[in-house]
Design a protein around this nucleic acid. Structure first.
Lengths: 211, 211
DNA sequence: ACGGAGAGTGAGCAAGCGCTTAGGGGTGTC
DNA sequence: GACACCCCTAAGCGCTTGCTCACTCTCCGT
C-alpha cells in the first residue's frame, strides 16, 4: 500500500503530492482563480493560461471544470476534518483539546486562505453528488468539535447551555477567517489562532486564563 | 423633503419601498436568484422570468445586471450599518449596548438571510467604484462595533487584550449567520440572536450572567 | 530505425450569455 | 380622435463560454 505522503511541515502547499506536474499546476491555478473571482466567473481559458498551457490541455487531466473544483473541495475538506479530529483524539483536558482544535483549524484557514476560501465558499457550485459527499465531511467536522464541547460539559469544566448552537458558532467563527484573512494584513496566522482559541474558551465558559 | 419610509416593523421585506412595482419585483427576484446560485451563475433571463416578465423588461428599470446587485448590496449594507449604529448610540452600559448590537445584527442576518447572503458574499462581483462605496459602509460598521468595545474597555467592564482582533471576530461571527442560517432549521432568529449576544459578552470578558 | 503512447496545441463548434432594437398596446390629456 | 407617454415584448446581435477534434510533437522500448 502507499505510504502516507509526508506532509508534516506546517506551511507546505496543499497540492504537493499531485502528479503529473501539469495536473498540479492546473489545480493550483484553479485554486487561485476560483478564490479571486469565484468558480462561475472563472473561465477554463483563465485556468489554463495561469498554468501556462493551452485551453485544451486542461481536458487531458480533468474531465470538466467542475471536477477541478471537486478535487479542490474534497481534499480541502478532508484536510480540515483531519485537523479537528487530531485535536479531538489527542491527550489533554477538554479545554486544551478545544483550544488546540480552534488554534490549528484557524491557522489552516489563515495560512491557506486562498484554498480555504474555495473550499468553504464555492461548494455550492459542485454537482449534486459531489456536493453531498462534501456535506458529509462537513457534518463529521461539526461532530468532532461538538464531541469536544460535550466532553467538557460532562466533565463540568465547560458551561454551555446550548451545545449544538455553540458548536455552530465556534465553527462559524473559524471558517469565516478564510473570508477576511489577508496575508498582507496586520495579523499572522499564529496570532489569529491564539486569539481565537482564547475567545472560544471564553465562549464555553472555560475562562481565558485572563484576569 | 421625503419623509423616511416607515419601516418600523421587524419582519417587513426589505424592498417594500421600491417603485414602480415591477422594479421591486425585479429586485426581489434578483435577491433570491443571487442567494441561491450566486451572482455569476444567475442569468438576466432567470431574474426576469422569476419577476414574471420578459428578459428585455429588466433593462427598462436597471441599466445592467450589476446595477441590480449594487442596489441590493448598497441598501443592505446601509440597513446593517443603521442597526449597529442605533445600538451604539442608545442609552445603557457598554455590555447592554454590545449585546443589543449583536442581537439585532444577528437577528437581521437570520431573518433576512437571503438578502444578507447576497449582501455579505456577492460584493466581490461589484464594479470597482460600487465596490469601494460598499467597503466604506463596512468600515463604518466595523468602527461602530469597535467603539462599543472600546467604551467597555475604558469603563473597565470589558477585558479585551486585542480590541481590533476581537472586533473582527465579533463581526465575523454575526456575518457568518447569513451563510448557515436556514429558516426551516432548528433555531429561530430570536434564539440565535440571544445565544450570540451571550457568547459575545463572554468573549469580551463581561460574563454571560451564567454560573 | 521505428511504432505506439502520452502530453500538448490551434482551430473551432454549439450553446448560452448580457444587452439592444423596433415596435405594440394600454392610459390620460386636450 | 390624435397624440405623447410609459411599460412591456419578440427577435436577435455580437460575443464568450465549456468543451472537442484532428493533429503534432517528444520520448521510450525493442
Amino acid at each position: 500500500m502507499d505510504a502516507e505522503p509526508k506532509n508534516t511541515g506546517a506551511k507546505v502547499e496543499p497540492w504537493g503530492d499531485i502528479t503529473p506536474d501539469a495536473a498540479r499546476r492546473l489545480v493550483s491555478a484553479a485554486v487561485h482563480a476560483f478564490a479571486e473571482r469565484g468558480y462561475h466567473a472563472t473561465t477554463t481559458r483563465d485556468i489554463a493560461s495561469r498554468a501556462g498551457m493551452s485551453p485544451a490541455a486542461l481536458y487531458i487531466h480533468y474531465k470538466t471544470k467542475e471536477e477541478l473544483l471537486y478535487q479542490i473541495s474534497k481534499v480541502g475538506h478532508e484536510r480540515a476534518l483531519t485537523i479537528v479530529e487530531r485535536a479531538r483524539d489527542s491527550a489533554g483536558t477538554p479545554a486544551e483539546r478545544l483550544a488546540d482544535a480552534v488554534r490549528s483549524f484557524v491557522r489552516w484557514h489563515a495560512e491557506h486562505h486562498t484554498t480555504a476560501r474555495v473550499v468553504q465558499y464555492e461548494l455550492g457550485a459542485l454537482a449534486e453528488e459531489h456536493h453531498a459527499e462534501v456535506i458529509a465531511v462537513r457534518k463529521a467536522t461539526d461532530g468532532a468539535v461538538r464531541s469536544i464541547i460535550e466532553d467538557g460539559v460532562k466533565a463540568g469544566v465547560f458551561d454551555v447551555p446550548d451545545v449544538r448552537g455553540t458548536t455552530v458558532a465556534v465553527l462559524s467563527l473559524c471558517i469565516d477567517v478564510a473570508r477576511w484573512f489577508n496575508a498582507a494584513g496586520r495579523s499572522t496566522p499564529d496570532e489569529v489562532g491564539d486569539l481565537y482559541a482564547g475567545l472560544v474558551l471564553r465562549m464555553v465558559g472555560a475562562g481565558g486564563g485572563q484576569r
